[in-house]
Design a protein around this nucleic acid. Structure first.
Lengths: 338, 338
DNA sequence: CTGAAAGCGCTTACAG
DNA sequence: CTGAAAGCGCTTACAG
């Protein structure tokens, strides 16, 4: 029972018109002038036959794939889950399908995806997360519209959308200052991540409102993992004793921070307050529930799609999505003891 | 500077052969007999021009899209992140691109995806998570090869891949029995989820080796969320006092279980042991770190892809992926006190 | 208001 | 060993 695909020709024959008419009805061609009863016959034929346009034929003809690509490092990272959700929603709203690939799987890599998606399979490509200069070069060579997400590109032709990480850091530090903390230390992210650099910058700026001047010993760097957060905390406990609060660059490291403080016999928030960036679902399930800064990750993904679709590939794009940031006050921060 | 796409014809002209030859070289046609120097010329032309086959044209001609679709409920759920990772890897290994969509976004829905992906955009479709009878009917009407993942389909023509949830439950309960627990209660998942039903069945079976017979009061149902776990635990505390261990159907509910036990003044694991299904990253970050049963979620995704690609759409598929299950012993379980 | 025709770029059976 | 030709299903400019 191999039922042949229903094509425009089948619909045209049933409706008694030319296939060009059917095509223009299907695509709601505004320049089409058609008698109501003719349109009715066409619509009926489409419905009766269960006609669906063949996307391959359409793509070949129009040179548009109707899909967008997004390459992320890892599906298991909830930060990217949020970005994907926002991007998918915006893509669908604009009539596109989103193809999301990860660059760290067993058979995948950024390179592999650039090959796979650079053959007319997608109309544009978004890269989230770390990218090498070689990858970026390859990306440009594909001749596809592209966009970096949550990361500044390294080339001279900028096309990126990021969040206001400095502002997020300020919100966190200001929260601690309001609670009366002065000696606030920072568990920063890896040097290579520019989100980490921007959060560290925001920390330094906000600390100008503290009576405690920031010294090199007040900052320790981790690799955005729980273990990295644990090691950085151990380092700070040695280098910067007396701190009453910690601003942590991400939630994963905060897990290690909480653990190390606990093992050192310090209570959170009674002895030390802790606040971290990104209000991931995990945050409220930690003990104590983690105070965080919520950033508009979904909107970041949505904005990337919009810009990819509406900007000309030659345009420079350097946008900071700055809406809807807020401090989520939970159990891990409390007033400094007098 | 609108550089026209490089096509087969361009390559053929440069290499001084017909485009049919180029096509067969590109696709490594085994029936092709060609002089080494001719092949060399073709390869060189491809490389010099940076030729990439147009996938739309190829799809139109071969009636194969080279992509597979996977619809999940939610990107933020780490269980699906694992399934995606495994499916993506298997798809790439077989030369396919995976399109993953979520059915709960602002502009998406299962229905929307079934429309979007049922137009020759994908060669097959996998559905993970809950599906209505209507959706399943629509799925079948698309005439696409399909597969249910982590869930049995409700139709009469079975095509599903699931994990051995009953066996996972047995591993968990046996672990508790070995630790000396006898009165073990169960926080079960929602009635509608067949993963939940299978885990409950496994619990009952394994409890036959306990001196404590399972009564209705030993089981409470939650909706797979932290809040649901909390409420079920409160119910069990009332209905089934004296239990020394809890088997929880998933990690999300376990978060609520731990919280409720703590508020009730019970210590984990000193007073009550807790074990849950799926070794998600979250598990080791809870306090106390959660003992879990690790199930091969990535392999589940990979197997779904393999079966989708290798089985004929008319075949019945009812596979249980049973490899590599193991108990991960952490801090939330301990020997029963004598 | 509607129809005929060209052509997007590829693959494949066939001819030589 | 290599070339010529048909045709996948659609869109679009043009003719009538």
């Amino acid at each position: 029972m191999t039922t042949r695909r229903v094509t425009l020709v089948d619909v045209a024959r049933l409706a008694g018109v030319d296939k060009a008419i059917v095509s223009r009805v299907v695509n709601a061609d505004p320049s089409l002038v058609i008698r109501p009863d003719t349109r009715e016959r066409v619509l009926e034929a489409i419905s009766n036959l269960g006609y669906r346009p063949n996307v391959a034929a359409r793509s070949l003809r129009t040179a548009k794939a109707g899909t967008l690509g997004l390459v992320i490092p890892d599906f298991a990272n909830p930060v990217y889950a949020e970005i994907i959700t926002g991007a998918e929603s915006a893509a669908l709203a604009r009539g596109h399908v989103l193809v999301t690939g990860s660059s760290t799987g067993a058979h995948s890599s950024m390179d592999r995806y650039l090959d796979l998606l650079g053959q007319g399979r997608v109309d544009g490509l978004m890269l989230a997360g770390p990218t090498t200069a070689r990858e970026q070069q390859k990306l440009e060579s594909l001749g596809l519209p592209w966009m970096m997400v949550n990361r500044r590109d390294t080339g001279e032709h900028h096309r990126f959308v990021i969040l206001d990480d400095a502002q997020a850091a300020k919100l966190a530090v200001e929260h601690l200052l309001e609670l009366g903390h002065r000696h606030i230390v920072h568990v920063a992210g890896p040097f290579g991540a520019d989100t980490a650099r921007r959060r560290a910058t925001g920390y330094r700026q906000a600390m100008k409102n503290s009576t405690h001047p920031v010294r090199a010993e007040d900052i320790a760097r981790g690799d955005y993992t729980p273990r990295g957060g644990a090691e950085a905390t151990a380092e700070l406990l040695r280098k910067s004793p007396g701190a009453t609060a910690v601003f942590v660059a991400n939630v994963a490291m905060a897990v290690g921070v909480l653990d190390t403080l606990r093992r050192a016999g310090l209570r959170v928030p009674e002895d030390v307050s802790v606040v971290a960036v990104h209000d991931l679902p995990l945050a409220e399930h930690l003990v104590p529930a983690l105070t965080t800064v919520r950033m508009p990750l979904q909107e970041l993904g949505a904005r990337a799609v919009d810009l990819l679709l509406t900007s000309s590939p030659e345009d420079e794009v350097a946008e900071v999505v700055g809406t809807a940031m807020e401090l989520v006050y939970r159990e891990s921060t409390a007033p400094a003891r007098p």
